[in-house]
């Protein structure tokens, strides 16, 4: 990303692109990733509710998956999933 010159800065440094932080992919922080087992999933969505990143999304079939661009691998979804449908596995 090219850095702006002082002349190009918005007046008062107002940021007028809401949600532009999503340019930054926090997924690189991850050391573990959540894997959903759809056969165990009851589609309750608790993983979606408790995700601090807001990166768990529901698929068309009603199951859930995380956007790996942002998932930091905290493991809350796996820990809170009471049907135990999510497993954390080491990255790489």
């Amino acid at each position: 990303m090219t850095l702006k010159t002082w002349r190009e800065l918005p007046i008062g440094c107002v940021v007028s692109e809401p949600g532009s932080a999503s340019e930054y992919h926090t997924g690189s922080w991850r050391s573990q990733r959540p894997i959903w087992n759809d056969t165990k999933c009851i589609k309750c969505g608790i993983c979606y509710v408790f995700c601090p990143e807001g990166c768990v999304q529901q698929t068309e079939e009603g199951f859930f998956k995380a956007n790996m661009d942002y998932c930091k691998g905290c493991g809350i979804c796996a820990h809170e999933c009471w049907p135990r449908a999510i497993k954390m596995v080491e990255e790489g």
Partner: peptide
């Protein structure tokens, strides 16, 4: 029109922001 005012700046922008203010 949602905007963010008072975002924080690191060293990559702080000098330019101070220069803009001085000008």
């Amino acid at each position: 029109k949602p905007v963010t005012m008072g975002a924080f700046a690191m060293s990559d922008y702080f000098t330019e922001i101070m220069k803009a203010k001085d000008e």
